[in-house]
């Protein structure tokens, strides 16, 4: 038993993120904290809505370790048939296959979700462009937003600066060097990754990564995790990093890193 624990701790250390587990011991018990974030996955008909099913466990640990986000440990699932989705202003829509079209009622529910201020992060777990999942997403969001189209999100967008300095746009794959987004209700309401970002969090029971990050290996995984945390942070705090006081600080750090970019 002792050998197993030692091996697990060693593996985590080697994974480059030794703080993830140890910090969890330092934090206060969950019940004393206000849970200000719930990982909510959107369930839909057909396809694989549970792609990267266990990614949340690892992501949750990371959030607790490095941020002041106090997440609920349990993952939650909502569908577009009832009102439960309106309890969660940030939802994940994941998959790697084509899925069945939303009914008119479901489309309306999703539209109302965005009306209320909701944000949806779509992650193509297939890690490819023009996938079956991609065509389903574009088809369904065209129904929700007949006007606007998905547009590449600028690297100067506030979400790239929400917590980490701008990470690379990557996941377990690197199909696209950009995130796509859709503006609605004065915010980027839909964030769409083609790179299987959640796939970079998948670990086995020993804490070892399940999916290999291609082509960049572990440095790419780190970038993917940083980007994911930034996206979540954006979902909770919006664009306040665009405020002058923060932009000045970011510019200073950017200069130290050899860059000149600031969020816009």
């Amino acid at each position: 038993m002792r050998k197993t624990l030692t091996a697990a701790a060693l593996l985590l250390f080697l994974a480059g993120l030794p703080a993830l587990c140890s910090s969890a011991e330092l934090r206060e018990p969950f019940e004393k904290r206000l849970e200000n974030f719930v990982f909510v996955r959107l369930k839909y008909t057909g396809g694989n809505w549970e792609a990267n099913k266990t990614a949340w466990e690892s992501l949750c640990r990371q959030l607790v370790a490095v941020t002041n986000i106090h997440p609920a440990e349990a993952e939650k699932t909502v569908d577009l048939k009832g009102m439960e989705i309106f309890d969660h202003p940030f939802i994940f829509l994941t998959g790697d296959q084509e899925f069945a079209p939303f009914s008119a009622e479901e489309t309306e529910t999703l539209k109302r979700f965005f009306d209320g201020g909701g944000i949806c992060f779509i992650d193509d777990a297939g890690g490819a462009l023009n996938s079956g999942f991609d065509s389903s997403i574009r088809r369904e969001f065209k129904k929700v937003f007949p006007g606007p189209e998905f547009q590449p999100i600028s690297k100067k967008h506030a979400l790239y600066y929400a917590f980490h300095m701008p990470p690379e746009t990557a996941g377990a794959r690197k199909a696209a060097d950009y995130l796509e987004g859709m503006e609605y209700n004065n915010q980027t309401a839909v964030i769409y990754s083609h790179n299987d970002i959640l796939g970079s969090f998948l670990t086995d029971k020993f804490g070892l990564p399940v999916k290999k990050c291609v082509p960049g290996g572990e440095p790419q995984r780190l970038e993917a995790k940083k980007l994911c945390i930034n996206i979540l942070m954006y979902g909770l705090t919006g664009t306040y990093k665009l405020d002058a006081i923060h932009r000045g600080n970011i510019l200073n750090k950017s200069k130290l890193k050899g860059g000149t970019e600031v969020p816009e």
Binding site: L26, R27, H164, M233
Partner: peptide, 19 residues
């Protein structure tokens, strides 16, 4: 916004965060 608590760790360098 207090983005990280007093007990949270920073696995990366301070310069890698927008804090």
């Amino acid at each position: 916004i207090i983005l990280r608590g007093m007990t949270d760790v920073l696995p990366l360098n301070e310069i890698d965060y927008t804090l």
